[in-house]
C-alpha cells in the first residue's frame, strides 16, 4: 500500500491527477480562473436580477430574493451529493484525495445551506406571513444543515485522519438520502413551500429574463464553489502528505513567505 502512495502514476489519463502531488499544483492553477469566472458571472447575474428581470405580478419586487435563494438551495443539495460521491469513491478505491475533497466541500455546502435558509426566511415573512414553518421542505433543508455540521464536527474531532475520513464518509452517504427528500418534498407531501419553478420534466414557469438571471447566478455559485474548494483542499493536501518529499520541496519554496 505504501508503494502506490510514494510513486504517483505517470499515465496519460486524467486519473493521474488523483495523485495529490499532481493535483496540488493543478488546483492552484485552476482556482483563480474559477474565482474570476464567479466574480464575472455574479456581476452579470446581479445586473440581470435587478435591471433586466421585470417585477413579478404576484409578489412585486420581493421576489428578487429568488436570484440567490434558489441557486443557494440547489448548491447546498448538490454539494452534499458531490461530497457523498467523493466519500464513496474514497471508501471503494481507497484514494486519499477523495476524502480531502469531501472535507474541502463541506463548509461551502453548509454556507449555501445557511444562505438558503436565511434568504428563505426573509422571503417567507413578506409573502407567506411567517419567517419559518415546519413544513416538509423547510424541515428537511434544516436537517441538511445539521448533516453538514455533523460531518464537519466529526471529521474535525476525530484525530486519526483515516478514521475521521471513514466516519465522515458514513455521515455523507447516509445523509445523501435526505437530498431527494428535500427535492421532492413539495411533490410528495403538501407543503407551504411552492413547487419547483424549474425542473427537468417540465417547461420552466418563469419569464425568460427572470430564468436567465437565476441560471447565471447558479453558474456563479458553481464557479465560486469550485474555486473555494480548490483553495481549501490545497493546505489540506500539504498537511496530510507532509511526510512526502514533494511537500518538503513545496515548503522550502514557501519558507519566509507566509
Amino acid at each position: 500500500m505504501m508503494k502506490e502512495m510514494k510513486r504517483p502514476e505517470r499515465g496519460k489519463s486524467l486519473f493521474r491527477f488523483a495523485a495529490p502531488q499532481l493535483f496540488y499544483p493543478l488546483a492552484g492553477a485552476l482556482a483563480p480562473w474559477f474565482a474570476a469566472a464567479a466574480a464575472a458571472l455574479t456581476i452579470i447575474g446581479l445586473w440581470l436580477a435587478f435591471f433586466v428581470a421585470p417585477t413579478d405580478a404576484q409578489q412585486g419586487e420581493v421576489y428578487r430574493v429568488i436570484f440567490i435563494h434558489v441557486p443557494a438551495a440547489w448548491m447546498s443539495m448538490f454539494v452534499y451529493l458531490i461530497m457523498a460521491f467523493w466519500s464513496a469513491v474514497g471508501l471503494v478505491m481507497n484514494t486519499r484525495l477523495s476524502f480531502m475533497m469531501a472535507r474541502a466541500l463541506a463548509p461551502t455546502g453548509a454556507m449555501f445551506c445557511v444562505v438558503a435558509l436565511v434568504t428563505g426566511a426573509l422571503w417567507g415573512k413578506p409573502t407567506w406571513g411567517a419567517y419559518w414553518v415546519w413544513d416538509a421542505r423547510l424541515t428537511s433543508q434544516l436537517l441538511l444543515l445539521f448533516l453538514y455540521f455533523g460531518f464537519m464536527a466529526l471529521t474535525e474531532a476525530i484525530e486519526d485522519p483515516r478514521r475521521a475520513d471513514k466516519a465522515g464518509a458514513i455521515i455523507a452517504l447516509v445523509g445523501a438520502v435526505n437530498v431527494p427528500i428535500i427535492y421532492f418534498s413539495v411533490k410528495w407531501w403538501n407543503t407551504l413551500h411552492q413547487g419547483a419553478s424549474v425542473s427537468l420534466t417540465k417547461a420552466p414557469s418563469m419569464a425568460a429574463t427572470m430564468l436567465a438571471g437565476m441560471l447565471v447566478m447558479a453558474l456563479a455559485s458553481w464557479a465560486y464553489t469550485i474555486a473555494v474548494t480548490l483553495w481549501r483542499v490545497r493546505p489540506l493536501i500539504l498537511e496530510r502528505e507532509r511526510h512526502a518529499e514533494w511537500v518538503a520541496a513545496e515548503l522550502d519554496a514557501l519558507e519566509g513567505k507566509v
Binding site: G60, V62, R64, V65, V118, L122, W123, K125, P126
Partner: peptide, 16 residues
C-alpha cells in the same frame, strides 16, 4: 426601496 420590500431583499443580499 424595492417596492417596500427593501429590508427583505437587501437583507438577503447583504447577509449572503
Amino acid at each position: 426601496q424595492m417596492g417596500g420590500a427593501a429590508p427583505f431583499v437587501w437583507g438577503s443580499y447583504g447577509i449572503t
